[in-house]
Design a protein around this nucleic acid. Structure first.
Lengths: 378, 378
DNA sequence: GCTAGCTTGGTAAGCGTTTTCCCCCTAACC
DNA sequence: GGTTAGGGGGAAAACGCTTACCAAGCTAGC
């Protein structure tokens, strides 16, 4: 009763409250809770009773300060521009791919007792670095989804906490995780060119400066050139990874009277969705008149009509790998000087695999939609 | 140089390092950085120089401990069951709706300098409470997406931090935010029954115990009964809010020879996607043979074929409202005893609006996909 | 010219944990 | 019976900040 009055209104109980209630010192409470030094059975019991009684849970900030470990990793996602001034003009779009990656990270993080501290940055924020630096100091490490910082900022940031980038480029101080864009795109390109015999292609790229988009484009261009096939690309073929962007690009091309190629290879599934939609509006049949392909194989890809041919990567695996890589850097850091072969500077590639569905011109698969393996290409 | 050796390998600089470099006390550094008490220009300059030199950013945990504010809110999402033992068996599905809500929360949170600490709980975890309690103490408040805790656990939790539930039920200590399920579903039901004249309906519900699913079902049942229309529902009509679940339900009903109703009303868009897919596999035309509708109007709804008729709610608005509500509870708490009219116990409903597209039997809209307003029902 | 009042900077006391010492007590060994 | 391990518990330091409190220097007012 008196302890109710000690703490102003009703702040959560502290370890002192528990110690007082159990008639022991705070050290004993901590030892019981953290399983250190094996306290006497009676002590343990008294403490646990007091803990249950008061509903005590240790404060995260204090714990982090003392243990020098927050058990939190920061995640930075790039948020597509807001189309106009209104608050949720971007509600049209969601970030299926990044969100699934985050889910993958989170599941693995939980096993290590870590949580994800998520922050999206406006693509057109003039200087997002302040907020990202603050985020870094709320966490034990950072995972960056897109290139939002300059190389120099990244270097400074990596002096504060370990950093892993996704689909970026590794530096001497940061690690990078990405999928095998080249292999995936080459398989897709060969399928379109050799299996289907398409002779005119276009590449709908992602947003400017995206290493993924550029690598995919380069691999496609290499295959096209090797086969002597025409490839259209450029600024007017930019989908920006978004459905709305893909739809807009096609609308404008058609408006300008640009003839459609036999196949449109999109930098990701979401922009392919927009392309499908725009083509449908103009009565252009897919894959009859124009074939369309995506990249990533997000879950909805198989629910579209026609079902989208894509390049599958383990999206959650990407997130899981990113977290594990970061985790090894975090736990290595304290032992600094000892093992020097850290993950820093590593560039980790995950496999990518062609998934043939209808939108490339292949016949409809009879597979049950919830199964992935059975519809996977050889 | 000596300071390099002071701190073991290269820990980030502390406020002491800055103070030493600038030749002032730590109090002055803190005052300059936090804009308190307006220090002398020369002092400010020296400090800022040292800060820039060393790349100092204050530690979040220490700051949180001292300020009694972490500037973090925890978010708990329920993760669908893993279909089998493998790690990513649930990769088939993503959580478009919760993820968009989170995005809405995050955008608003950023304005207040808050970040989101995200944790998903396995639906079949026997006791997720330990982890959730720990999350609570890493945050200033909690937003819970689904009912994952018992009422009693929720009550204990709300003694630690303010709590807002989404699509739950408010209690004396927690607030709740949800959309106007009744109005939305009634509008949809009337459209199907009166505008289209359908006489046999089915309700594909979400997961067990979901208040949203039950309210939507109840509203539909009320309209159906009022119009003397047949409504099929029950355990065999459970989609569990997931595409795979919706597809599975339809497959099994067909396998058991259950005749399809004229219209299937799904508890959300994702399960409707699965239904569309399953019907397509069996050559059942939508909306010709069977009409299908969703709920939520997630972005992909308009990219499906046929475009999905749904009930629109401002998904990001839901998240934004949840955060604002929680924020008011957080900032009210310190002034305890003073203003007693907090948000606790409030039940906030956001509007829901019918969006007619093709899957209910309406003619194809000519609207550009990236525009929402123009295809919205009256 | 002396003191009241204001500005400015430093010292130190928190914030709530974990963990390092250190002390005490018991048991075991010679 | 005296000495020594060794286990268990408590006091206190440390973690890196913010801020209350205090001291000093200045200006201004009489």
């Amino acid at each position: 009763m008196s302890s109710d009055l000690d703490r102003m209104p009703n702040q959560p109980p502290t370890i002192y409250d528990v110690a007082r209630a159990a008639g022991v010192s705070i050290a004993s409470v901590s030892r019981v809770l953290n399983g250190q030094r094996n306290p006497r059975a009676e002590t343990r019991e008294r403490v646990l009773e007091a803990v249950a009684e008061l509903g005590f849970v240790p404060d995260g900030a204090a714990r982090a300060l003392s243990a020098r470990l927050k058990e939190v990793v920061g995640v930075v996602v790039r948020r597509p521009r807001w189309n106009d001034g209104s608050m949720f003009a971007d509600e049209d779009e969601n970030l299926q791919f990044p969100d699934m990656i985050n889910r993958g990270m989170e599941i693995v993080a939980q096993r290590h007792g870590f949580d994800l501290l998520i922050r999206s940055v406006d693509l057109h924020d003039p200087d997002p670095s302040r907020r990202i630096f603050a985020l870094a100091r709320k966490s034990d490490g950072l995972i960056l989804h897109d290139r939002v910082l300059s190389v120099e900022q990244l270097e400074r940031l990596s002096r504060l906490v370990p950093i892993v980038t996704l689909a970026g480029v590794p530096s001497s101080t940061t690690a990078n995780v990405h999928c095998d864009n080249e292999a995936g795109m080459r398989a897709l390109a060969r399928h379109l060119i050799h299996d289907h015999g398409y002779r005119t292609l276009a590449y709908l790229c992602g947003h400017k400066g995206s290493p993924d988009s550029m690598r995919r484009g380069a691999a496609l261009a290499a295959e096209a050139e090797a086969a002597g096939v025409t490839l259209a690309e450029g600024e007017e073929w930019r989908g920006g990874y978004q459905a709305a962007g893909g739809a807009r690009a096609i609308e404008q091309l058609i408006a300008h009277g640009v003839p459609m190629p036999r196949a449109i290879v999109c930098a990701n599934d979401q922009s392919a969705m927009g392309v499908l939609h725009a083509l449908a509006r103009h009565g252009i049949s897919v894959p009859g008149d124009v074939a369309v392909t995506g990249f990533d194989d997000i879950p909805v890809a198989r629910h579209l009509s026609p079902q989208l041919t894509s390049v599958r990567q383990s999206i959650q695996g990407l997130g899981a790998t990113a977290f594990e890589t970061l985790y090894s850097m975090i736990s290595r850091a304290p032992a600094a000087g000892a093992v020097r072969e850290s993950a820093r500077g590593k560039d980790i590639a995950l496999p990518a695999e062609l998934v043939r569905r209808e939108s490339c011109g292949c016949p409809r698969s009879a597979a049950v939609p919830s199964q992935r393996g059975s519809e996977t290409g050889r």
